[in-house]
Simulated scan of single mutants.
Amino acid sequence: MKSLNDKKLARAKRKIEEIKKFYKHVVAYILINLFLAFVWKFSFKIVGNFTVSNQFDGDGFTHIPIWLIWGIFLALDALKTFGFLNLHGKDWEERKIEEFMKD
Rank of each mutant, 00 (worst) to 15 (best):
D6K: 05
D6N: 08
A10K: 14
A10P: 01
R11Y: 07
A12E: 10
A12F: 04
K13I: 05
R14T: 01
R14Y: 12
K15A: 12
I16P: 01
I16S: 13
E17F: 13
E18M: 08
K20Q: 14
K20W: 15
K21M: 13
F22I: 08
F22E: 06
F22P: 00
F22H: 09
K24D: 07
H25K: 06
V26L: 08
V26A: 07
V27K: 06
V27Q: 07
A28W: 05
Y29D: 02
Y29L: 04
Y29A: 03
I30L: 14
I32D: 03
I32V: 09
N33L: 06
N33S: 10
L36H: 02
L36E: 03
A37T: 06
F38P: 02
V39I: 06
W40I: 12
W40R: 11
S43V: 00
S43R: 06
S43H: 06
F44R: 04
F44M: 09
F44A: 03
F44L: 07
K45C: 04
I46V: 15
V47W: 07
V47T: 09
V47R: 04
V47P: 00
F50E: 05
F50R: 06
F50M: 10
F50Y: 10
T51S: 04
V52G: 01
S53N: 07
D57M: 05
D57C: 00
G58I: 03
D59P: 00
G60S: 12
G60I: 04
T62F: 02
T62D: 10
T62H: 12
I64T: 05
P65K: 07
I66L: 10
W67H: 10
W67D: 03
W67T: 02
I69M: 07
I69K: 04
W70C: 08
G71A: 07
F73Y: 09
L76M: 13
A78V: 01
L79R: 07
K80A: 13
K80S: 10
T81H: 02
T81P: 01
T81N: 05
F82R: 06
F82M: 09
F82W: 14
G83D: 11
F84Q: 15
F84I: 14
L85G: 06
L85A: 14
N86Y: 03
L87R: 04
L87N: 07
G89C: 13
D91C: 10
